[in-house]
Design a binder for these strands. Structure first.
Lengths: 192, 192
DNA sequence: TGCATTTACCTAAAGCATTTAGGCAAATGC
DNA sequence: GCATTTGCCTAAATGCTTTAGGTAAATGCA
């Protein structure tokens, strides 16, 4: 019985690739075992169960995404940083749709708190250094940006903006313009 | 053999309730059959398959949500309409988390085009009548609002904003203030 | 090198969800 | 009151998940 050389690491990476190919929801232990030409039960020495596998793929995607974002914002500030940062999310969605879907998966609070998710929030806050926001407005803005990036990627990948003018590319640019303008001129109080 | 009185309609409604109780992802034909105290195979006279059931729950949720939104914006305009409209989404998420998750499920393009999803887009556009936006800016703004509502609900339900100050309620209010300000002052061109 | 231990993958089996085929009894229509 | 339709059934195949226990390959140490 030849050994294939399974490991948690290899399973997670292969799982991420599989997600990009067939969709994150479709990633199963069975399919993954098939890819490695191995019996399903063999995976259970490396991952606790199917849920554990998916969680690890999510954590992997969050890390990868955070690394890319960190690269993108290094040496940039203001709108330049905002655009570079935002484009990381959008590009990741296009390049790795399965991993991006994984990155949107709900994690239990403890796992989430120990994930690269916190790096994402920190980087978003760093972007805001280029704008003059003080607490608690900075936090509100972090949450707004997170919502927009998350929501836009999700809707766009669901095909929400395709087959209608103007094209999604154009909208994305204009949304970033709008967010930049908003951050430079964040309203201080409710204006009914 | 007593007849329970299954129908597609009843299955979908019960499926929606089940989703709110145990989560949309956890809704299965088996669990639904259990609720009706009926054998699983019996469901297959009323829905094509498990995917069909989920799709119908999604369509149902989209309709219900669109009806609520229509009620909310009737007789309102400007920021008043924007806030009422946005709150429908947020309240629905809290009141019916499973249905809200269903409403976020990816539909195939043909099904989506025939769904209440188009009403949502139309209503969002109607909201913008209170602001002075011309095409293509109105479309960009529709997409931005969709992204924010979608993204915020998704992140909030995933617990993204809990256990940290300021509370989510406060952020939501301030985000709506910000969106209102942005729509009243939508940037016309790129401002580097 | 030779043997013991650990490790990696295996077979077997049970549990549960999905789906189809075919049957019987209850409801419906004439 | 009988024929037809309809609703729910049983039975069975398929596939994914998970655990238990076995065997052979790799590793380590004398």
């Amino acid at each position: 019985m030849a050994r294939v050389g399974l490991s948690t690491e290899r399973l997670v990476r292969a799982g991420a690739e599989l997600a990009d190919e067939i969709g994150f929801e479709q990633v199963t232990a069975s399919e993954l075992a098939r890819r490695f030409d191995v019996k399903v039960a063999s995976l259970y020495s490396h991952v606790k169960n199917s849920q554990d596998l998916k969680t690890r793929i999510t954590l992997f995607a969050l890390e990868e995404l955070a690394d890319r974002a960190a690269d993108a914002i290094a040496g940039r500030a203001g709108k330049d940083a905002l655009v570079a940062f935002a484009n990381v999310y959008r590009d990741y969605e296009r390049e790795h749709p399965g991993r991006a879907a994984a990155a949107r998966m709900r994690l239990d609070p403890r796992t989430a708190a120990a994930s690269a998710g916190v790096r994402h929030a920190q980087m978003t806050r760093a972007i805001l250094r280029g704008y003059e926001l003080t607490e608690p407005d900075a936090t509100h803005a972090v949450r707004l940006l997170g919502s927009v990036f998350h929501g836009y990627a999700s809707l766009e990948s669901a095909g929400g903006f395709s087959h209608s003018a103007p094209d999604s590319e154009e909208t994305w640019t204009r949304i970033l313009d709008a967010l930049d303008a908003l951050l430079r001129n964040w309203p201080t109080a409710s204006t009914p």
